[in-house]
Design a protein around this nucleic acid. Structure first.
Lengths: 223, 223
DNA sequence: AAAATAGTGTCTTTTAGACAATATGGT
DNA sequence: ACCATATTGTCTAAAAGACACTATTTT
């Protein structure tokens, strides 16, 4: 007579990207109950016969459902309770994944459903709340780490990076200070000189040095 | 024929406090297999018949095993895998809890086993790694939030706070700047004028305004 | 009064912001 | 040549660090 039944254990993934100057999240329409027909985060059960851990399960689910594993993925938090899933007491290990729109388009095997995080319909389970938390985390880490860079292609310019940080943080950032800071901190390394097409002078291309990813100080409070 | 069995779901708690100028963690000797006789983090199964969520389970386990729920507790991460627990594929939702040594002494129902995090014996399961991560998180958050204040009693002085931050971060922090910053940021409110005993001038006592807990900038890089 | 610690003022150094000048690519 | 954007230089403003002076409490 155990004092408890085992909970359901699932993994859910908040896959974020930038499109049309907005943060968007990848959602899928549920085909089965509960919440059949409703939009939901990509997710699934942990497979204890094959998955080596939660990260592994997340990668498997991404690969199965979307056709690729994103360049950046990290655990957000674990949400649990008796009522959040009608099937029973459930534990959801939530991951945040970031990818550039380009990489998403080129890797994805299925037609994508991207929705602006600022105006989501009512999602299945507690997924609205989960997306909100994921965005909060991205904003918060954006003030002291290079996390938002993962929304860019592997090679990017400092002006692109500046723009992404402004979008993610939602405030204007001093251009001079931003450039000076990321340059002086040595978190970037030149990635070929060849630039992308644009209207004015072409910008130098960089990639992240993966060892360093934290700023010593925040990137500013806007103006 | 499911493609997986349900994992074991447990909660583990890294309860940290300061004693003798050191960060220490609360450990308990395991009485049952696996790892009987080995030191381990306080933890236990999630009870799906009573717990309303993971936080609730953590509070219940704290109360049951130690006799109280700590003032501050937050989820650290969830660790999972097939081999970390010999009983099977397991999921451990890990919490970090902070408490002052005084509160720990006055609330705890059982004799305490505090061990310096800098010199731990070999613990049960993967608990050494978990403690290491908890300390990393505390250090990291200490640079931009008031988290380490929860290692102090509810009422404390700025010099006490300064000292705790130096211990947690492991670097000397400029006293003038620290004082100026926490004063000007308005994260503290005066808590009675009556001071604690000491040798020199008595310090003003404050408590945390709970609304505000993040610094705009880090507390410094030491000297 | 002396010692010890708290709190504050002020000067210096560092970092961030404003703004303009220069550089470089496209048309 | 002209426009647009990138990059850099420089001046100003804000924040942090160094250091000393004042304040308060114990012995």
């Amino acid at each position: 007579m155990p004092e408890h039944e085992s909970p359901i254990v699932t993994v859910d993934i908040v896959l974020l990207t930038l499109e049309d100057e907005q943060l968007k999240v990848t959602l899928m329409e549920r085909t089965k109950e509960p919440f059949a027909g409703r939009l939901a985060l990509p997710g699934g059960y942990v497979h204890t016969n094959t998955d080596q851990n939660g990260d592994d399960a997340a990668r498997r689910i991404m690969t199965t459902k979307l056709g690729f594993a994103p360049s950046h993925m990290e655990q957000l938090e674990t949400i649990s309770g008796p009522t959040r899933d009608p099937r029973g007491w459930s534990v959801s290990i939530v991951y945040v994944a970031l990818i550039s729109r380009e990489a998403l388009a080129s890797h994805s095997a299925i037609p994508l459903h991207l929705y602006p995080v600022a105006a989501l319909p009512e999602l299945a389970f507690d997924h609205n709340k989960i997306v909100r938390r994921a965005v909060e985390r991205l904003r918060s880490k954006g003030t002291y780490s290079t996390l938002p860079c993962h929304l860019l292609p592997a090679r990017f310019s400092i002006p692109q990076m500046h723009h992404v940080f402004e979008l993610v943080l939602g405030v204007p950032l001093n251009r001079t200070s931003f450039t000076r800071k990321v340059s002086e901190m040595g978190i970037l390394e030149l990635a070929g000189k060849e630039p992308a097409a644009g209207r004015g002078r072409t910008a130098a291309q960089y990639r992240l040095k993966e060892e360093v990813s934290f700023f010593h100080r925040p990137l500013g409070d806007g103006m």
